[in-house]
Amino acid sequence: MSADGRPVVRITDVKRTYRMGTVDVHALRGIDLRIERGEFVSIMGPSGCGKSTLMHILGCLDRPSAGAVRLDEVDVDELDDNELAEIRNKKVGFVFQTFNLLPKLNAVENVELPLIYAGVGFDERREKAAGLLESVGLKERMYHKPSELSGGQSQRVAIARSLANGPSLILADEPTGNLDSTSGEEIIRLFQELNNKGITLIIVTHDQEIAEHSKRIVRLKDGLIVADEPVNNRRRAS
């Protein structure tokens, strides 16, 4: 995918420092990253290198200690908390390793959550959420609680939720980390399908094989990018 001058993500010299009593933990030490529309990027690196920290900053769940973050042509640094919430609601969809579905709500209600905060009325909301569940192959599981779903199914509900408000960017932090290889394969195939439809994706993974399903791999180490290269022999999920 060639640069068209309107990247989905552009961050420059992003640093994130946690203060632990008297010591400073430098989780990110100066990250520059530009991701174009339609890309499918894997972020890899050893544990503790700052992958999740980076994802949280990209997802507007956290702010950098220094540096600039531009999402979809918006300077995130200048936004207040309410505006950040709106970005999380509309522009980014987050997928977690542990799914993070609300246990008391059924599948379709979980998918509806972002729509509620976007102020979408019940009928429209239900229709849209049902459509999204259908698109991830879970139409028959609409009224099931998370406890009645398998890990793979739960993650697909979470992906449907992340898509609810038509975001510009999907962020997935180790989305297959809690899944067996078959379910993981299903999820990665779903991601490839979504990417084929033009959705921009960034996933964090420890699994080289999973990463090879994406189009580009960014490697972090100690809070810095140490490698950033396209995937040459891209795998296709079966």
Binding site: L61, E86, R88, N89, K90, F94, L102, Y117
Partner: peptide
């Protein structure tokens, strides 16, 4: 707490 985190992650504002 976790539920609140999830709600915030999907776009709940403080006032929500």
């Amino acid at each position: 707490v976790r539920e609140i985190g999830v709600r915030k992650a999907v776009g709940a504002r403080r006032r929500d």
